[in-house]
Computed example of a mutant assay.
Amino acid sequence: MAEIKIGHHSIDVDIRAELERYNWTRPRWSGDKLIAASPFRYDQTPSFFVRLEPYGDYPAGTWSDSGAYDEEWRSGNFVKLLAFLRQETYEETEEYLLGEYGWQYASGDDNVKLFNLSLRVQRNRQPLNQNVLTDYVENYEYLKSRGISERVQRQMGVLYCPQQRAAVIPWRLANKRLANVKFRTVYGKIFWYYKGAQPIRELVYGLEFAQPTTVICEAEVDAMSWMEAGYAAIAVGGASFGEAKRDLILRTPIEELIIATDNDKAGGKLRAEIEAAMRGHVRLRHAYVCGGVSEEKQGGAKDANRALELYGVDSLRKAAEQSDVVSNISVKLRIRGG
């Protein structure tokens, strides 16, 4: 555990455990550092590092990317890195860390210390004005290069920002009102969301096209990959699944969810969270893209989009056809005393 600062709070965080939930390219772990290929770029060389422990004036969690395309992403703190990995906003990751580690246990005197954390007041969320998309243009080449047809991109309202060289991916409510917008660079893996919009933790991507049987996955491009294979699909947009997302799904026509998260530790955690939250509400099946084999092994793929790129739509259809049914029956044993 290493101390990091979030606002006015200093908390102990298991930085290595948080990072180990994600697949890294050519990782080298030591006691105080992770060296790997950059997660922000299409990189195959170990040009990125994260401090697992404090080093001089640099706190634990400090990272640096020597080959960064953008100065904003050349270095930063642990919250910024984890927000990228979790595919959520900086503020949402702060809330996650405070919720996960915002307590201390002192084993020496059995004292438990709880931080007096300030709670955010829930605002009455307002949809975005559709006019925020008027500055962007129709250009479908980037996602076409990743196997997503113009037909699917048009259905989901994908646009392009020439100034930022970024794909523009609208997030909508089930009634098709605009709730948020994700921007994803076409030259690397950096993304951001429309400032001041509804948090991703309160949204589910693709709900406006939900059907009685729908695939649920992590990222928008994975959902669009399943659409290419002929399935209705929604995306969580990150590595966690809470009550807000569950309740949104329960208000849709969905009767059966095919859970198809990424083939990594974070994906496994998300898969378990979705099953726990949705079990008993809808029918559930587990689909494993490429048999659950990650890309490091022959015939594997990290996620639905990578499987689409490498093996085509049949790989996704096969995963759905071979999906495992989850029993909704829960048995409680009652022990009778003598």
Rank of each mutant, 00 (worst) to 15 (best):
residue 63 W to C: 03
residue 102 G to W: 02
residue 94 E to R: 00
residue 55 Y to I: 05
residue 104 Q to S: 15
residue 110 D to L: 07
residue 98 L to C: 07
residue 90 Y to V: 02
residue 100 E to A: 05
residue 102 G to P: 06
residue 62 T to Y: 15
residue 57 D to H: 12
residue 78 F to D: 06
residue 111 N to Q: 11
residue 91 E to A: 05
residue 66 S to N: 08
residue 83 A to V: 05
residue 53 E to F: 09
residue 111 N to V: 11
residue 58 Y to E: 11
residue 111 N to P: 04
residue 91 E to Y: 00
residue 90 Y to L: 15
residue 87 Q to D: 05
residue 95 E to D: 13
residue 57 D to P: 06
residue 53 E to R: 12
residue 114 L to P: 02
residue 58 Y to H: 15
residue 60 A to H: 13
residue 55 Y to A: 14
residue 81 L to F: 01
residue 64 S to M: 07
residue 71 E to T: 04
residue 114 L to V: 02
residue 91 E to F: 00
residue 87 Q to F: 01
residue 61 G to C: 03
residue 98 L to G: 03
residue 78 F to W: 11
residue 107 S to R: 14
residue 60 A to Y: 12
residue 110 D to Y: 12
residue 112 V to K: 01
residue 70 D to I: 01
residue 71 E to I: 04
residue 102 G to I: 14
residue 107 S to N: 12
residue 68 A to R: 07
residue 72 E to V: 09
residue 99 G to H: 11
residue 82 L to N: 09
residue 109 D to Q: 10
residue 80 K to F: 04
residue 81 L to R: 00
residue 93 T to H: 04
residue 86 R to W: 01
residue 99 G to L: 14
residue 73 W to R: 01
residue 92 E to W: 00
residue 115 F to N: 02
residue 106 A to F: 15
residue 58 Y to R: 15
residue 100 E to V: 08
residue 60 A to M: 09
residue 87 Q to M: 03
residue 73 W to E: 02
residue 96 Y to T: 01
residue 115 F to V: 03
residue 101 Y to C: 07
residue 55 Y to G: 06
residue 59 P to I: 07
residue 75 S to Q: 14
residue 94 E to P: 01
residue 75 S to W: 10
residue 74 R to M: 03
residue 89 T to D: 15
residue 101 Y to I: 06
residue 65 D to P: 02
residue 59 P to D: 14
residue 96 Y to F: 11
residue 87 Q to R: 06
residue 61 G to S: 03
residue 64 S to H: 11
residue 110 D to R: 04
residue 73 W to I: 10
residue 85 L to Q: 13
residue 78 F to H: 04
residue 73 W to F: 11
residue 76 G to R: 08
residue 62 T to R: 12
residue 104 Q to H: 12
residue 100 E to I: 07
residue 85 L to Y: 09
residue 102 G to Q: 04
residue 108 G to W: 14
residue 64 S to T: 10
residue 77 N to L: 05
residue 93 T to V: 13
residue 93 T to I: 10
residue 104 Q to K: 07
residue 105 Y to D: 06
residue 111 N to K: 11
residue 87 Q to S: 03
residue 84 F to M: 08
residue 110 D to G: 10
residue 104 Q to A: 13
residue 83 A to T: 02
residue 87 Q to L: 06
residue 77 N to H: 05
residue 90 Y to N: 15
residue 76 G to V: 03
residue 78 F to E: 05
residue 75 S to M: 12
residue 55 Y to E: 13
residue 78 F to N: 15
residue 114 L to N: 05
